[in-house]
Amino acid sequence: MSPLPDRLLEVDGVTVDYDGFKALDGFSLTLDAGEIRVVIGPNGAGKSTLCDTIIGRVRPSAGRVLFRGQDISKLPEHRIAGLGICRKFQAPGVLASLSVADNLGIAAAIDKRWWRSFGFGTPPAEAERIAVILERIGLAGRRDVLAGTLAHGEKQWLEIGMVVATEAELLLLDEPTAGMGPAETTRTAELIRSLAGDHSIIVIDHDMAFVEQLAARVTVMHQGQFLMQGSIAEVRADARVAEVYLGRAK
């Protein structure tokens, strides 16, 4: 069975079991190259576990994850990252005692084998990439500031910048606008839209205003299962979605 050429990611019937609690329950999802996909769902729907599973932090007890047709569900995390999948975490986690530029540098490193670290300075190709990303995320003026001293919104952008700097084909952004005000949220949406085409992106969020600004297809999860998929308008109109969000039992 050969996958369609433009199909980048295929999550196929994945189940993740936390001591009897099924965080993912036979969940499937496919993503095409260059696509932005928003995944929404109430708390505990399994959105973060989905990300964890794709990047290999959590191992599925059933099902497969295919990336460009290759089963990655048993590969070690750094191998998965090496194939071109990168995730931004929910909790802001920049490397606090490193400068903004060094944070991006670690993400942008082209040759990540450890024995190549015995040298000084940044290779020119990477420096160029870092400069471009600094502009893109609006932190060009703060390249030598320690990342731990950035404002909350700036940290989120730096993290998105780090994910982009890896030049990964598939970016997973887990709540990129958590704790942001409306203006910052709008800027973040613009940033993410500007990345589509170069990258395929899965965004997890539950801020509907933000999701609308992304203008992308939406997958709704509920209790570890696939609920529905469609445009933001279709999702809004769907009775089942309203039900799970309002917390009524079926």
Binding site: Y18, D19, A23, S48, T49, F89, Q90, A91, G93
Partner: peptide
């Protein structure tokens, strides 16, 4: 093993 979801990033 307590499979924990606690983030330790």
């Amino acid at each position: 093993a307590n499979k924990s979801r606690a983030l330790d990033v």
